[in-house]
Amino acid sequence: MKITVAGETKEFNEGLTIAELIRQENIENPDYITVSVNDEFADNENFPSIELHDGDAVEFLYFMGGGSYVIL
């Protein structure tokens, strides 16, 4: 199935969850991101159970401070 991740459409296996997508995409600081699927926020607690479907568009929104430090 095809899923658009941060604007880029890629091929994934059926049954992919948000948690698995985060792992496959090597997302930095996965505990502190916001995810939207088709312009709806996904609850962070449900990342392991939310399955993605063909044609979904996923965005990762990152916490960003104002300078040279990063939250881990």
Binding site: Y32, T34, F63, S68, Y69, V70, I71, L72
Partner: peptide
């Protein structure tokens, strides 16, 4: 609405010098 609350202070380690 986007970021519900700040990362907890006691997340260890909380932050590191990353540069900009």
């Amino acid at each position: 609405c986007v970021f519900k609350e700040p990362p907890p202070k006691d997340a260890v380690p909380t932050c590191k010098q990353a540069g900009v």
